[in-house]
Design a protein around this nucleic acid. Structure first.
Lengths: 148, 148
DNA sequence: TATATTTGCATCGCGAACGATATAAACAGA
DNA sequence: TCTGTTTATATCGTTCGCGATGCAAATATA
């Protein structure tokens, strides 16, 4: 018999990994309709909150490396969702701004949060228990260096 | 102002996605020492529990598609961690078995669950609250088709 | 038995993630 | 000012993750 700590059913990381994948898959049909991927949707969330940000700020907000975000932004630029322009103040920065089309996606995707929100609600995960789950996930993220 | 449901800080999926990535990163230094990735470690967990399984069973256990698992197993085969052999009962199946080296990794990685377990413990995530977190994640996974 | 369908696995293509490295702009100190 | 360092971004290579597709073995049906 394998030791308890090696059993798949006792792994927190496997649960997070699987839950993340499955929930991301729930977004897929809603986003692919507009040629978007889930990470691209995250970039839109960031830019809808605050337009015209340098690559670095977007990457930090998403806790991703710039070498992940740069190609992602390049693809979105090619799709006409955003523009990338050299910073005037600081020539090293690339300022990322939404195009008209990128802004318009907000209305087209208006139902996405609700659709996915409804899909995820189940026995022990409800609006009532969301704060508990959020707190635990935020603690994990903060603890593993997500706040640096 | 952007609507509440579009704020990054209100997204469950982004939290799961980030927590999953960061926790997986915590495994990285421990696994790369032996040339392993986290998904490869998951395959080992499955095979340590039950050796000599067809590709399909491994994929189902990890809730992954076979087109994800097959190349992963091929890489592990090339590393000498496991073998893949056509099934005798059913010629379509590929039976995946651990090599001596694959079995030996269990002892070499004995400290991994504890190291990562200690790393993740924080304010609201402790052995005491693990069951709550596990239940919520399992509900999400089961609800999103993870049991099919 | 001949044919159609299903099943198990593999291949291909693309978009993430990320470590390692490169490049140019900004900055700091002599 | 010249030079070394830091900072912001980009490029490259490898490994997932998965949709789409292909193929061969097994199974069902006529």
């Amino acid at each position: 018999m394998v030791k308890e700590e090696f059993k798949l059913d006792n792994q927190l990381c496997f649960r997070l990994y699987t839950a993340s994948r499955l929930l991301t898959q729930a977004y897929h049909p809603l986003l692919s309709k507009y040629g978007l991927t889930y990470p691209q949707y995250l970039v839109l969330l960031v830019l809808w909150e605050k337009d015209a940000q340098p690559v670095n700020d977007i990457a930090r907000r998403l806790l991703l490396e710039t070498n992940t975000v740069t190609p992602l932004l390049q693809r979105m630029e090619k799709e006409g969702i955003l523009t990338r322009a050299k910073g005037k103040k600081d020539g090293r920065q690339m300022i990322v701004s939404l195009t008209k089309e990128g802004k318009a996606l907000q209305k087209k995707l208006a139902d996405v949060p609700f659709t996915v929100g409804n899909a995820v609600v189940c026995e022990s995960v409800t609006p009532k228990t969301f704060p508990d789950l959020f707190r635990m996930l935020d603690d994990i993220i903060g603890h593993l260096g997500g706040d640096t």
